[in-house]
Each structure stands twice: as C-alpha cells, then as structure tokens.
Design a protein around this nucleic acid. Structure first.
Length: 370
DNA sequence: AAATCGGGGTG
DNA sequence: CACCCAGATTT
C-alpha cells in the first residue's frame, strides 16, 4: 500500500473537525454577526429588515414560505421576478389554493425543479383547507407539509417566529465548513452540523439565520472570501489557511450523453402540436413538443410522428448542456389542417407550462415565442 | 446512502 | 466548460 494511503487516516484525524470548543467560539461570535447584519443585510422583497423587525413588524409566513420554496437550489436573481408575479397574482395562501394546478405550473415555468410547483400547490391547499390558512409555527410541524424539508421548515419557523433552530442551507454549510475547517464533505455530517448550529442560535433566531446566509452570499462566497470584512474572522479556522479549500466536495459522477428528436409541428392555421409530460420524472407535468425518447450513447432513429402530411422539414441540431442532451429539432409544416385539444395557437405558446428547454426548442424551430 | 430533479450565473 | 446555488423526494 502506498505510503500516502497509509497516512490518510492519520492525516484525517489530525485535521481540525467539528468539535465542541469551535461551536462555543461561534456561539460567542453570534452577537458580532448580528451587529454586522444590522448594517449589511440584503434588501429582499420577502424580507423584513432588521430595523423593522426590531420595531415589531412580523414577516408574512405565506411570503416567507413561497420565497423559501422558490429559493431551493435557485439563486436570488432567478427568483425575484417569479416571486413578484406569484404574489401579484396570488397575494394569499387562499388565493394560491384556489388556483388551478396547471396555472401554477405555467407560472412556475422557467424556474426549474417542477415537483416544487406541485408540492407548493398541494401545501397551499392543505394549509388553506385544513389549517384555516394559518401555517404551523414549529419547524417540526412545518416539515410534515409537502415540499417542506429540514431546511425550509427551520427557515420559516426561525424567520417568522424566532424559533431557535439551526437553519442550514448551502450558504451556511459553506460558512460552517470554513469556520470549522471541516475535512469531510458536509453531506456526511449534516445532522451533526445542524445540531451544533442550533446550539449557537441566539434570541434573534430569524435574523441570525439570515445573517449567516447573507454572510455566505456576500463575504464568505463560493469563489471568494473577503475575510477582512468578516465578523466571524476571530474564530475561523479556514481563514488561517486558504478558505477556498473548503467545503470539501464529494466526487460527482459525469452524466452520460443523451440524444433525441423533437418535432415542432405547425398546421396551416398557425397551430402547434403540444403534449403533457407524465407527472413524475424529468420536467414532470409540464408541456412539451412530441418527440422520441432521449437515449444514452447514440442517436435514435427519426421516428416521425406523421406520415406524408408534412411538406417541409427544417432540421436543427441543438445542444442543451444542462441535461448533457443533444436534440435534433425538426420543424414540420403540415399541408392538412389539424384539430384537437393539443393543438395550440403559436401566439399562445407563451401561456403554456413550457419549461425553458422547450422554449429553446421552439426558438430553434423558428417559432415566435414570448 | 445515492440518484434524481432545471436553470441561470460566474470565473 | 465546470462549478455552484435559501434542498426535497424517491429509490
């Protein structure tokens, strides 16, 4: 066995890790962090500023919940406009619960992770129907609702009711991984980390959670660390070396390349053939254009959906890197007038629950789409 | 425990 | 292009 491998366990044991003294150090710095937050909090549409919060203004749980679900694995810039449209259209949980699921999906189109939209609507119906429109206050109860996991439950209860729970999102994971100089991927010790964080939460639990997240977003950022402006610098282990060495990421597997065909069929009256994807799986429940399966390794045969009714076929290769997916987009202009519920006016494609992938397909096929 | 689920931003 | 982001759910 190579010497390096023999030494590995010893090196790991020597590396600083999550321990009690370090947690106490963070606890001692919590007030410095809150002071930093009072002067440096980001202004966000769903947030109550620390000043307003001190004057007794309480956040609206509906808006906090909506923002937290939208922000799951999604950046603030991407969420802003969606949050504004949702709250304009559905100002309360009752309004959202009364909406058609399809309307919610259509409004969510472009934000990604579409199971979130279905869970969002299911949760709204539950809260409006069974709970008289009042969200539960404790994290434990919140986590029983669809689409609300450990993070979102803690975030809502801390921000809205100052429940003293550890709010552990990607930003806070990074801050803590650096503060403790964790030598293992956070994934492997997330429950311990969340518990340790809970021990440090002060009275202003909501502001503390948001302070840690803002610190991760602006000071202790993924690809940069401005330690000279960090209120946690005095106790931070990574700052003594290179903060960018943390967090340690687990190896990720490459995605296999996939290939497929998509058919953008347009009849003489300007109507386009659409379909609805299964509720489960990739882009579940969203609209689509018909096409082949997306197969690994090699391109499938064209599998044209119509025989002899099209007069012109434009062919465009388009690569969608997000899915490691290469699609061949076919534009089929039909000679015969088609009818049916799946045929939609080209001008109204923008109203559909069409994910970004298929919007790009439409553009690649030469359609006008808003 | 690992895989899956989108899309946009950034260096 | 690779990596990351206010994670949850399914397998």
């Amino acid at each position: 066995m190579p010497l390096a491998l023999q030494l590995m366990p010893i090196l790991c044991a020597l590396m600083p890790s999550l321990d009690q003294p370090q947690t106490k150090k963070l606890s001692a710095l919590s007030h410095a962090l809150l002071t930093w937050y009072d002067g440096n909090a980001r202004s966000l549409p769903w947030r109550i500023s620390p000043s307003d919060r001190r004057h007794g203004i309480i956040p609206d749980p509906y808006r906090v919940w909506l923002s937290e679900v939208m922000l799951q694995q999604t950046t603030v810039p991407a969420v802003r406009d969606f949050f504004q449209r949702f709250t304009d259209r559905w100002p309360s949980v009752h309004d959202l619960a009364a909406a058609e699921e399809g309307q919610v999906m259509a409004e969510w189109a472009g934000l990604g992770y579409y199971a979130r939209a279905r869970n969002l609507h299911a949760c709204a119906k539950k809260v409006a129907g069974e709970l008289d429109g009042v969200f539960p206050k404790s994290a434990a109860e919140l986590q029983t609702l669809p689409g609300i996991g450990p993070y979102t439950a803690a975030a809502i209860s801390a921000i809205c009711h100052d429940e003293r729970v550890g709010v552990l999102d990607g930003n806070v994971e990074r801050v803590l991984a650096r503060f403790h100089a964790l030598s293992h991927p956070v994934r492997d010790l997330k429950p311990e980390l969340r518990e340790a964080l809970t021990q440090t939460v002060p009275e202003r639990a909501g502001d503390y959670a948001q302070a840690l997240m803002d610190l991760g977003a602006t000071i202790c950022a993924p690809r940069a660390a401005f330690c000279d402006r960090c209120p946690l610098l005095p106790g931070c282990r990574a700052a003594k070396a290179d903060p960018l060495d943390f967090p340690v990421r687990p190896e990720k597997k490459p995605r296999p390349s996939r290939f497929g065909h998509v058919f953008v069929m347009r009849d003489m009256d300007g109507r386009v053939k659409t379909g609805t994807r299964p509720r489960r799986g990739l882009l579940g429940g969203m609209h689509e254009f018909p096409g082949s399966d997306w197969t690994e390794g090699a391109e499938p045969g064209p599998q044209f959906p119509v025989e002899g009714h099209w007069k012109q076929a434009g062919k465009v290769h388009h690569v969608f890197t997000h899915f490691a997916l290469t699609l061949t987009v076919w534009r089929l202009d039909l000679e015969r007038r088609e009818t049916g519920p799946d045929w939609v006016d080209e001008e109204r494609l923008g109203d559909l629950a069409l994910p970004s992938l298929f919007r790009k397909v439409a553009v690649a096929a030469g359609l006008e789409i808003r």
